[in-house]
Design a protein around this nucleic acid. Structure first.
Ligand SMILES: [Mn+2]
Ligand SMILES: [Mn+2]
Ligand SMILES: [Mn+2]
Ligand SMILES: [Mn+2]
Lengths: 222, 222
DNA sequence: TTAATTAATTAGGTTAATCTAATTTATTTT
DNA sequence: AAAATAAATTAGATTAACCTAATTAATTAA
């Protein structure tokens, strides 16, 4: 079995690889894991020894297939536990991340799969992030940022790229919830402020920063 | 927060104190924790420094009130998670202990309390062991071993002292389940074999070893 | 294309939790 | 009460995961 620390490194490498490209820099890992660079170098060497990553001195790191499997497994755990916390225990979507950071390290594929069944095989977590299946397959999402929509375009709000409680609370306060259909009514040229219409609600003005943190499934042009 | 290791030491000390007496020996801890004696000595010194235990060189160890609180909290977690696994995920009572050993270390009182509510505030875990309340209060049980009952006496089966899957499976196979009422029909003098009658079932013969691992709430004499 | 800057590694420690081998303390036996 | 046995501690190491300070490698700017 892998240590929690190794698992957190794998998850971080996976996410950085997804977000930025093929190889991940020591400094990027140091930043997201909140440790200092020499600790990362040290750990990467040990993980390379275990064939979890391919590491080339001063050239960055990549996951091996084995490493990817472990990383996706942890992400699966994390997201399923988040669904559990929200759907079954009544937590709000801005409260579950830190708990899921702990729960994701429970080692039992069988438990994960039973939990999955108990929850009704959810496809996404409370933040709209897709849940990998038992084989580690993640559905490729075709969601785009709301900030890429043009005047008059529509979409369905399906996820966030900013997972901070502050942002999630803001959305709650503004009545913007997963699944809402959204239409872009206006885009202020000066500062890219969006005026959006939520289904059955009056128009809402959101900043570019917000529009750039919301994922939508763009509606096909009618 | 305390490390998993510390928490396991505290739980082990608590259980040994309950079972055997006031002070706990280094060797006893080494045995149940499956480590060697010098590791225990070392750890006890560090835990004494944190005021979790009172430790006197070569005289054994006791929990402080602080240590007891932590220990009971972990036992509460453990037993609640076992209820979750059996009641909600469909695990059998002989399958849940090792998973609960992991889950008990999730650090969140709030989660524990929400789980407790979700489960309907159970009073006992799947093995009949009482669940401490949120204040760390454990109901004092008045259960006795079936092996202490005399001919003709009755009781209700409320717990086990042997938690091994082997024993739990044996009980399943023999149709002996928590809550069953049991009457002692005969006790063989030669080897203390018990013949018992389970409610609505035919007589069953169990060894002394088994009778000595079953807890019953003795029925008052009619 | 040399110099300056930034990123990464090496060198050398620390701490928690473990170990083995040697020694000391406590408990039993004779 | 001395000897034998058993339990516990000390001494000295090891490993994972981290650190700071110093050095080297890579990138960007002049
Ligand atoms: Mn999360
Ligand atoms: Mn999430
Ligand atoms: Mn258990
Ligand atoms: Mn139990």
């Amino acid at each position: 079995m892998h240590s929690f620390t190794e698992e957190n490194y794998l998850k971080a490498i996976y996410k950085l690889q997804e977000a930025n490209g093929l190889v991940v820099a020591t400094s990027a890992l140091a930043q997201v894991l909140e440790v200092h660079a020499p600790s990362v170098t040290d750990m990467l060497k040990r993980m390379a020894g275990k064939k979890l990553v391919t590491y080339q001195k001063s050239k960055g790191v990549k996951l091996t297939e084995k490493g990817r499997q472990v990383a996706v497994g942890i992400i699966r755990n994390h997201r399923l536990w988040e669904v559990f916390l929200v759907d079954k225990l009544g937590y709000k979507w801005d409260e579950v991340h830190d708990l899921a950071e702990q729960l994701e390290h429970i080692h039992s594929e069988d438990l994960t799969n039973k939990l999955d069944m108990f929850l009704g095989f959810p496809k996404a977590d409370p933040h709209g992030d897709p849940i990998p299946d038992a084989n580690g397959v993640l559905p490729k999402s075709k969601a785009v940022l709301l900030s890429t929509l043009k005047m008059g375009e529509r979409g369905t709000f399906t996820g966030v790229t900013d997972h901070t409680p502050a942002f999630l609370n803001y959305l709650d306060k503004s009545g913007i919830s997963l699944g809402n259909s959204i239409k872009v009514k206006a885009i202020e040229e000066f500062d890219q402020t969006y005026t959006i219409q939520l289904k059955d609600k009056k128009d809402t003005v959101i900043s570019y920063k917000v529009a750039n943190s919301l994922l939508v499934n763009k509606a096909e042009a009618a």
